[in-house]
Simulated assay, not measured.
Amino acid sequence: MFAGNLEGEAELIFYNLAGKKMDSFKLDARNGKLSIDHPQLPNGVYLMKLIYNGQEFTQKVIKK
């Protein structure tokens, strides 16, 4: 999904396909990996935006 060595803080934002912000939270990247566990988000298709080191990455994700 996202390539590169991740270290430090990142922000993750979830939007539904209508563009409504569903949730956001701060992440701490350790050992080059981000762990995402978001049980409050209902199953569905979302746009996930990762803001890290001054850059933004957007990816469509499916939560089952």
Rank of each mutant, 00 (worst) to 15 (best):
M1N: 12
M1K: 12
M1W: 11
M1T: 13
F2R: 03
N5V: 14
N5C: 11
L6D: 03
L6C: 03
L6K: 04
E7C: 07
E7G: 07
E7M: 09
E7A: 13
E7D: 10
E7S: 15
G8I: 08
G8T: 07
E9Q: 14
E9L: 11
E9W: 05
E9G: 02
A10E: 00
A10L: 07
E11N: 12
E11K: 12
E11S: 13
L12F: 11
L12S: 06
I13A: 09
I13K: 06
F14E: 00
F14I: 00
F14N: 01
F14G: 01
Y15S: 08
N16I: 06
L17S: 03
L17C: 04
L17N: 00
A18G: 05
A18S: 14
A18Q: 14
K20A: 15
K20I: 11
K20Y: 09
K21N: 02
M22W: 04
M22G: 03
M22V: 15
D23W: 08
S24T: 04
S24L: 10
S24N: 12
F25Y: 14
K26W: 08
K26N: 14
K26I: 13
L27T: 05
L27Y: 04
L27A: 15
L27G: 06
D28K: 13
D28E: 14
A29Y: 01
A29N: 02
A29S: 04
A29V: 01
R30H: 12
R30E: 15
N31G: 13
G32M: 10
L34M: 07
I36Y: 03
I36H: 05
D37A: 12
H38D: 09
H38R: 13
H38N: 11
P39A: 12
P39Q: 13
P39H: 07
Q40L: 12
L41M: 08
L41S: 04
L41R: 03
P42E: 06
N43P: 01
N43L: 09
G44L: 07
G44P: 02
G44H: 04
G44N: 02
V45A: 13
V45F: 08
Y46A: 03
Y46T: 01
Y46I: 01
L47D: 02
L47I: 15
M48G: 03
M48Y: 02
K49S: 11
K49D: 08
K49Y: 06
K49E: 15
L50I: 14
L50V: 11
I51H: 06
I51W: 04
I51S: 14
I51A: 11
Y52K: 10
N53G: 11
N53E: 15
N53V: 05
G54E: 11
G54L: 08
G54S: 10
G54Q: 08
Q55M: 12
Q55V: 10
Q55I: 08
Q55A: 14
Q55P: 05
E56A: 15
E56V: 15
E56Y: 08
F57I: 09
F57S: 06
F57A: 07
T58S: 07
Q59T: 10
Q59E: 11
Q59C: 06
Q59P: 01
K60A: 02
K60W: 01
V61M: 06
I62P: 00
I62D: 03
I62M: 11
K63W: 00
K63H: 04
K64T: 09
K64C: 07
K64G: 09
